[in-house]
Simulated scan of single mutants.
Amino acid sequence: MAKDINELIAELAMQGIHLPEGFVRIGEFGDSESLSESLIRLILAGEKSGTCSLVWSWEFDGETLPKVADIDIVLDWHERPVFVRRATEVQIVPFRDVTADFAASEGEGDRSLSYWQAEHWRFFTEECKRIGRTADTSMLLVCERFEVLHKLG
C-alpha cells in the first residue's frame, strides 16, 4: 500500500475529520476494481455492514487481527480514501459455520447464505493460492460488522 497512515490521518484532520481513539489502519475491499467499486457502493448505500477475511492472510501478511473499535480508513481501487469505518463486532468463525444472518449483513447478491458461500469460496480459494494454503471448510474467517463513521470525497 503506497499511502502512509499518518499522512492520511493528517489529511483527514485538515478536512475537520478527527478519528476516535483506537487502532487505525488502511483498509480496502475486493480483489478487482469492479468488485471494489461494487462493495464500496453497497457500504455507502447502507446495504453492507459486514465483511470477512481469512485468518491465514492476516498471519501471512504479519498483521494484527481486527478487534472491536478498530478504525479503517478505506481506500478505493485507485488508493483514494472513500470512507472511515469502525468495527462493532468481530468473531473468528470457520467458513462452514458462517450464518445466514452474517451472510445477509455483507449485502451482496441476493443476500442468501448459498450466494455468500459460492462467492466467498471463489475469493478465498484465490487468496489461499496467494499465501500457499489450500482452502477448506474449516479455515477460520474474521467476521466483522462495522459502522461507517465518515463518508469522504
Rank of each mutant, 00 (worst) to 15 (best):
F102P: 14
L65N: 02
A103C: 05
W77V: 08
E144S: 07
F102K: 14
A118M: 00
E126P: 01
L44S: 07
D101E: 15
V82P: 01
D97I: 15
H120D: 01
D110H: 02
G16K: 07
R111N: 10
R122Y: 01
L35Q: 04
S57C: 02
H78A: 04
T125R: 08
C52Y: 00
E63K: 06
S32K: 02
A87T: 08
G16H: 09
K67R: 03
A100K: 06
L39I: 00
A10Y: 10
R25W: 14
E37R: 15
H78C: 04
G16V: 07
D31R: 03
K48C: 03
K67Q: 13
S36V: 01
E47H: 13
S49L: 06
T137I: 12
T51F: 00
V55D: 00
G153W: 10
E33I: 03
K67S: 05
D72P: 04
I40C: 02
V142A: 11
P94E: 08
F83T: 06
K3S: 12
V98L: 11
F102D: 15
M14K: 11
V68P: 11
A104K: 13
Q15L: 11
G62Y: 09
T51C: 03
S105L: 14
F146R: 13
I43Y: 00
F102H: 15
E79C: 09
I92G: 08
G50Y: 06
V93D: 05
S38D: 10
I131Y: 05
E28V: 11
M1T: 14
G46Y: 06
I5Q: 12
E144K: 07
L54G: 11
E59Y: 07
S38P: 03
D61Q: 05
P81D: 13
S36K: 01
Q91G: 10
